[in-house]
Design a binder for these strands. Structure first.
Lengths: 133, 133
DNA sequence: CTACATGCAAATGCTTTGCAACCTA
DNA sequence: TAGGTTGCAAAGCATTTGCATGTAG
C-alpha cells in the first residue's frame, strides 16, 4: 500500500460520487502534485480487484469508479453523463429465467437506468418550447 | 440510400449476429472492396437512427450492432466477448420502482447478462483442474 | 444541380504499457 | 535488497472528423 494508492482510495471515498479516472486524477493531484495519470489507472484497477471499490462499465466511452463495492444499480443522464445510484432493490432471481434456455454459464447481470438529470431536463424542456414556437 | 448503405444493411441482416463496426467492415468489404471504415461507422450510426438496426452499448470497449431493432436483452461472454440474445421477457414495470425516489426523468433501462459461453466454459474448467492439480 | 455521402488520412479520447528510477516491507 | 510501484512518454484501440471528390435524386 503506497502513499499514492492510499490517497486515491481516501479521495474516492470522500467524493462519494462516480468519478472517471480523470476526475480522480484531478482531485488526487491536489494532494500529490507529481502523481501520474497512469498510476491512477493502475491503482483504480488494483483497488477494484481487491474489492475496495467498484469499477463501473456503464454506457458511454468512459469507465467510472464507485467508492461502494457492493452490488447496486445506477442511473445515467443521457445528456451530460452524470451518474447516480438507482434506488432499486437488486433483482435476485432474474438470472433464473435464463437457466435451461441459454448455452451460457451465467455469472451475473448489469442493469442501468437511463434518464435526464434535473439540470438537463430543464434545458431540454426549454429547447422543446423553442422548437415548437 | 447509397449503394454502401444498402449493402451494409443487407449484410447485417444476413449475419444475424451482433457484429462490431470492424466486423461489419470486413464482411461488407467482400462486396465493396473500396469502402472505407469511416463510411461503415457513419452508416451504422444513420441506420440505427432510422430504426433499421440497433446500436448496442454493452460492457467492454467495443460497440456492437444488432439487425433486430426491437428492445431485447443480451448475454455476453466475459472471456471472449461473444454476444447472444438473452431469452428473457422485457421488464415492463421496473422503471416504475424509481418514480418518486429519483430526481431523474426516466427514459429507459438497459439489462445485460454476463456469463461464459460453452467454448470458454470448457477452457475455464480445464484451467481450474490444472491449477488444482 | 444541389445536398448529401464517400474515401482517405489525420485527429480524438480513453486507456494501457515499456522502462528506468524509486520506494516499501 | 527484492519485488512491486512510480513517473513519464509513447503506444494502442475504437471511433470521429476535415476535406476534396463523387454520386443520388
Amino acid at each position: 500500500m503506497t502513499r499514492q494508492r492510499r490517497v486515491i482510495l481516501e479521495e474516492i471515498r470522500a467524493m462519494r460520487s462516480h468519478p472517471s479516472a480523470d476526475e480522480v486524477y484531478e482531485v488526487v493531484r491536489r494532494r500529490l502534485p507529481r502523481i501520474s495519470l497512469g498510476t491512477v489507472y493502475r491503482n483504480l484497477e488494483v483497488l477494484s480487484e481487491l474489492g475496495e471499490i467498484q469499477k463501473l462499465e456503464l454506457g458511454g466511452t468512459t469507465k467510472r469508479f464507485d467508492w461502494n463495492p457492493n452490488k447496486h444499480y445506477h442511473i445515467r443522464c443521457l445528456d451530460c453523463g452524470r451518474v447516480d445510484d438507482a434506488p432499486v432493490a437488486p433483482l435476485l432471481s432474474i438470472e433464473d429465467e435464463l437457466y435451461g434456455s441459454t448455452v451460457y454459464e451465467i455469472v451475473g447481470h448489469r442493469l442501468e437506468f437511463l434518464g435526464r438529470c434535473p439540470a438537463c431536463s430543464r434545458r431540454h424542456e426549454k429547447d422543446e418550447l423553442a422548437n415548437a414556437g
